[in-house]
């Protein structure tokens, strides 16, 4: 059995920068954008395609080894959950632990993604960011069956990422801070308190 950590959240939220801070020490993290960017820097014209192939190959390698590992995935489209499902189906005993980076301030995602692109890294359009941002919580609830645990990380422009909630499906254990951000208080909190199956 392996624990597979999904570092999730819309583009520009800070998954690549801060994801490692909430993944156990020395555990491998696979980031498809970083893999593609590395191919780009090495002169590959088809860096996106080859990056995706390499990402899939490395995920398979970790699954076959039975290792715990982490992957970065927006979880902003149903296709992302389909990918998670395929990982889960590889070994039904594996756990899927989602660490969701999210914010009440979508503008922060727009700005960070824009600056990242200006610095030579991958481009994500504001339309796509908005779409993924709006899809994130509804899709999480729709696909909650696949998930073993959820850690919610609140992102603001002024502070370090803050873990504000943890939910473990086993035993329906819910731990959270008193003052939740709106995105959790208004929606997800009630869903989790009812056992994540409303």
């Amino acid at each position: 059995m392996a624990n597979i950590y999904i570092i999730a959240g819309p583009p520009g939220i800070g998954k690549s920068t801060s994801g490692g801070a909430v993944i156990p020490n020395d555990l491998t993290i696979l980031d498809p954008d970083q893999i593609a960017d590395r191919y780009k820097k090495n002169g590959f014209a088809d860096y996106k395609d080859i990056g995706n192939l390499k990402f899939n190959e490395l995920v398979k390698r970790e699954l076959f080894k039975g290792n715990d590992f982490g992957i970065e995935l927006n979880l902003g489209y149903q296709s992302h959950y389909d990918f998670v499902k395929s990982i889960k189906n590889f070994n039904k005993d594996n756990t899927i632990d989602v660490i969701l980076f999210f914010t009440d301030d979508i503008n922060l995602c727009f700005k960070r993604a824009e600056i990242r692109h200006q610095s030579g890294l991958h481009l994500v359009s504001p339309t796509t960011i908005k779409e993924m941002y709006q899809n994130t919580l509804p899709l999480l609830k729709t696909n909650f069956l696949q998930i073993s645990s959820l850690t919610a990380v609140n992102i603001t422009a002024g502070d370090s990422p803050k873990i504000v909630l943890q939910y473990y499906k086993k035993g329906r254990r819910l731990l959270m801070i008193k003052e939740l951000p709106e995105w959790l208080a208004n929606d997800l909190k009630g869903f989790l308190e009812s056992g994540g199956d409303d």
Binding site: G20, V22, I23, P24, N25
Partner: peptide, 14 residues
Amino acid sequence: EAFLKKGRMKKSPF
């Protein structure tokens, strides 16, 4: 190995 990143959490900040 050049494609891999590593976790760095020794204790959950939570």
